[in-house]
């Protein structure tokens, strides 16, 4: 309980500092005189939130990121598992992927424009590429790090390749994969917003850039706050979903009394 209080206090304190710096037009090398105050932003936010455009932008951005991220998650897990488990896949895909990986997804905007008939698909493509690599790398490492005896046990029970994949590789690699998904959703936001700023029609990133070009600074901050809140919400969703499916992991009872006994029995975890 007190921890939640602390979290709220920390947020409020940050807002208070912002308000003081901007309302007093503080100029200490950093210049806050042109900076909108918290109240300016709050008023602008209140105006925007009543409009259909605001929610249209939010819905567009969310649709793009969810589509791109889901495709990236599936492709990343499949490709990561293949590269880790099959020598052929590693030879065919390994080097190729490693060469493409260092290219920032946002640098693929020209590629997206050339490839896709509409900007919409291009943005989803960039978001997808951005999330794909963290998921791929995390999956590859997690699959390679699996305890070999698990697989041997299943094979001596007469389990074949697919059974090993389904009953050992995927559940065993899941904690590592989730790490990749967490990173991936964060990178996705960076890229979806950037892509919208460059080539979007509607979306939070597009709107934020529009506000900047018409010198509506409070509007820019409304966009930034919106991005922050949406990013936080989606990564929390990924995190919670992840915790749910990895309840079997031995957790250190870090002073949070009562946590230990609760984890002792499995409920929905008879996964496979």
């Amino acid at each position: 309980m007190s921890r939640y209080l602390l979290r709220v206090v920390s947020l409020v304190a940050a807002l208070a500092v912002w308000q003081v710096l901007t309302s007093r037009d503080v100029e200490l090398w950093l210049r806050f005189s042109q900076f909108p105050t918290v109240t300016d932003v709050a008023h602008s936010f209140a105006d925007r939130i009543g409009t259909g455009t605001y929610w249209q932008d939010v819905a567009d951005s969310l649709r793009r990121i969810v589509t791109g991220f889901v495709v990236a998650a599936l492709a990343g897990v499949v490709a990561g598992t293949a590269v880790a488990r099959s020598r052929l896949a590693e030879d065919v895909l390994g080097t190729l992927l490693e060469v493409v990986r260092p290219i920032p997804a946002i640098a693929l905007v020209p590629v997206a424009i050339l490839l896709f008939p509409s900007n919409e698909q291009g943005i989803v493509f960039i978001t997808c590429v951005a999330a794909f690599f963290p998921v791929l790398v995390a999956t590859r490492h997690a699959v390679r790090a699996l305890t070999p005896v698990w697989e041997e046990a299943v094979r001596t029970m007469g389990g074949g390749r697919w059974r090993v994949l389904r009953s050992v590789v995927l559940p065993g690699a899941l904690p590592g994969i989730l790490g990749g998904l967490s990173v991936g959703i964060g990178v996705s936001w960076i890229c979806v917003i950037s892509a919208e700023m460059i080539s979007g029609e509607y979306g939070v990133g597009y709107r934020t850039w529009q506000d900047y070009t018409v010198v509506d600074y409070p509007g820019v901050f409304v966009g930034m706050v919106t991005i922050g809140v949406l990013g936080w919400a989606t990564s929390t969703a990924v995190e919670l979903a992840g915790r749910r499916v990895t309840r079997w992991l031995p957790r250190r009872a870090a002073g949070t009394g009562g946590g230990r006994g609760k984890g002792a029995t499995v409920r929905a975890t008879d996964l496979v």
Partner: peptide, 27 residues
């Protein structure tokens, strides 16, 4: 490998995400 020969390992070879029952059910 085949189901006619079961192997019991020295190290912990149970799948940690499966309940004891689900482990025994696996074969």
């Amino acid at each position: 490998p085949g189901a006619d020969r079961a192997l019991v390992f020295q190290e912990d070879a149970l799948l940690p995400w499966r309940s004891l029952r689900a482990n025994v059910e696996l074969p």
